[in-house]
Simulated assay, not measured.
Amino acid sequence: MLILMNVMNESPRRKELTRQAARLFVQEGFDRTTVRMLADEMGIKSGSLFHHFRDKQAILAAVIEEGTQNALNMAHQALNDTGETASARLHAMARAHLQTLHTDRNAHVVALYEWRRLEPAARSHLSHLRDAYEALWESVIDDALTAGLIHGDRFLVSRFIMGALNWTVRWYDPEGERTPDELANELVAMLTQPSN
């Protein structure tokens, strides 16, 4: 049985190695990234890498775990810091999601696009984090639907919102003209426009 360590409780060195691996996975893709490339990027010998990780799969799992846990933490914090209205909660979740692109972009991209590369045991172990994040979104969307703020089928609305937000990793520049707050406001405004 595969046992994965929670990277959130690991040493600062392991966290730094995980962040560097995330950057390389984004640049090269998981399949094209070799252990030697990872070691070179991290400034260590290939053999030393295995003091921190079992293999390349364990590095991928650590990157995805850290990225997903960070996104979940940011979402919880955003909801805790906002009002109770459906509108405030929807804005808070959209802002938090976009903020992950500014604070943890590489891990976020790896979690989105390299999830399928995880071995089944790692995928099973980490699915609870992804499910918890999606459950938060579904709760916020349910509140918005109940309040009449947005309309439509819950499943489709959820997929459209998550798809739109996730696609921003391809085009959104957090250092550009629009802040995550402004972009979140635009998204929510589009979703909540009254129908004619």
Rank of each mutant, 00 (worst) to 15 (best):
Ala164Leu: 15
Leu187Ser: 01
Ala184Arg: 01
Glu114Gln: 13
Leu126Gly: 08
Glu119Thr: 05
Asp143Pro: 05
His97Ser: 07
Ala121Phe: 07
Gly152Asn: 11
Leu149Val: 04
Gly148Phe: 03
Val110Tyr: 01
Arg178Gly: 00
Pro174Arg: 07
Ile141Thr: 05
Arg105Asp: 05
Ser158Asn: 14
Trp137Phe: 15
Asp173Met: 11
Ile141Cys: 07
Gly176Leu: 06
Gly176Ala: 05
Ala121Arg: 12
Gly83Lys: 14
Thr103Lys: 13
Tyr113Pro: 00
Ser87His: 15
Gly152His: 11
Trp171Cys: 09
Leu126Thr: 10
Ala88Phe: 03
Leu118Pro: 04
Ala184Cys: 06
Ser139Arg: 14
Ala88His: 08
Ala86Met: 06
Trp171Arg: 09
Ser124Phe: 05
Met162Tyr: 04
Glu186Gln: 08
Gly148Asn: 05
Leu126Ser: 11
Ser124Asp: 11
Thr100Phe: 00
Tyr172Val: 03
Gly148Arg: 04
Arg95Pro: 00
Val110Glu: 01
Ala94Arg: 01
Met93Asp: 01
Leu98Phe: 06
Ala122Phe: 01
Ala94Gly: 04
Thr85Phe: 07
Phe160Trp: 11
Gly163Lys: 05
Glu134Lys: 09
Leu118Ser: 08
Gly83Tyr: 13
Thr168Cys: 14
Ala189Leu: 09
Gly152Val: 09
Val140Glu: 03
Arg89Ala: 12
Glu182Asp: 14
Arg123Cys: 10
Ala96Leu: 06
Asp104Gly: 08
Pro180Val: 01
Asn185Cys: 08
Asp104Met: 10
Leu126Glu: 11
Leu187Glu: 00
Ala107Gln: 14
Ser87Lys: 15
Asn185His: 12
Met162Ser: 08
Pro120Arg: 10
Thr100Cys: 13
Val140Cys: 08
Gln99Ile: 02
Ala92Gly: 04
Asp173Ser: 13
Glu186His: 06
Thr168Val: 09
Asn106Glu: 15
Val157Asp: 03
Tyr113Cys: 03
Ala132Ile: 03
Arg123Ala: 13
Thr146Val: 08
Ala135Ser: 11
Trp137Val: 09
Val188Arg: 00
Ile161Leu: 15
His108Lys: 12
Asn106Trp: 07
Arg178Val: 02
Tyr113Ile: 02
Arg154Leu: 05
Asn166Pro: 03
Leu118Glu: 07
Glu175Trp: 04
Glu175Cys: 07
Pro120Glu: 13
Thr168His: 15
Leu129Pro: 02
Asn166Arg: 12
Asp81Val: 00
Leu101Phe: 10
Arg95Thr: 12
Asp104Thr: 09
Ser87Asp: 13
His102Leu: 05
Leu112Ile: 07
Phe160Leu: 15
Asp153Ile: 03
Val157Phe: 05
Gly163Glu: 03
Phe155Gly: 06
Pro180Met: 00
Ile141Lys: 03
Tyr172Gln: 05
His125Glu: 15
Gly152Gln: 12
Pro174Thr: 07
Leu136Cys: 10
Thr103Ile: 14
Asp143His: 14
Asp181Trp: 08
Ala88Ile: 04
Gly152Thr: 10
Leu90Ile: 04
Ala164Gly: 13
Gln99Trp: 00
Glu114Ala: 13
Asp181Leu: 11
Ala86Pro: 02
Val169Ile: 13
Val188Leu: 09
Gly176Phe: 04
Arg116Cys: 03
Ala184Gln: 02
Ala92Glu: 02
Arg105Phe: 08
